[in-house]
């Protein structure tokens, strides 16, 4: 099994630990990348990194640069990757789900809390 790369964009530190711990339990070989707002991941992607996440889990409400801003910038930028982008938000607002559908690059809108079932499903797409 190739080692998968999972990227998480979320301003809550505890969530990073939570996701990472869950991912490690499913597949210990996964690589985990942490970003705390949209700007960080954008800058990372623009820097032509060696490692690009297979899966990007994206929170919406974040300081400095929200998930929405990231999506707008990324969709309009020259940077193109083959990431599966999942919105992972504590929002259950239907309007957010509608808004998310406008972005074709978004694979799915997932509400928190995160479940290992979801992670397994997301990872299995690359097995």
């Amino acid at each position: 099994m190739n080692s998968k790369v999972i990227g998480l964009v979320d301003d809550e530190e505890v969530f990073h630990w939570l996701v990472e711990s869950n991912v490690k339990m499913i597949n210990d070989g996964c690589k985990f990348l942490s970003f705390f707002n949209g700007e960080e991941i954008l800058n990372y992607l623009r820097s032509s990194p060696a490692v690009i996440p297979n899966i990007l889990l994206l929170d919406l409400n974040m300081p400095v640069c929200s998930g929405w801003r990231f999506l707008e910038n990324y969709a309009n930028s020259a940077v193109k990757t083959e990431m599966d982008i999942y919105i992972l938000s504590s929002s259950i607002d239907p309007e957010d789900k509608v808004r998310a559908k406008n972005f074709s690059i978004v694979r799915e809108f997932v509400s928190k809390p995160i479940s290992s079932d979801f992670l397994k499903r997301a990872l299995n797409r690359f097995s």
Binding site: F15, L18, S21, M25, S91, D93, K112, P113, I114
Partner: peptide, 29 residues
């Protein structure tokens, strides 16, 4: 709903993890 949902979902995730992980991770959780 948003601001309380966020910490509660964290707690839910952490407690899930608690039951499925080793001792060290449990303490951290």
């Amino acid at each position: 709903s948003h601001n309380l949902r966020s910490p509660l979902s964290s707690i839910a995730g952490l407690s899930d993890l608690y039951f499925n992980s080793n001792e060290k991770d449990q303490d951290q959780a």
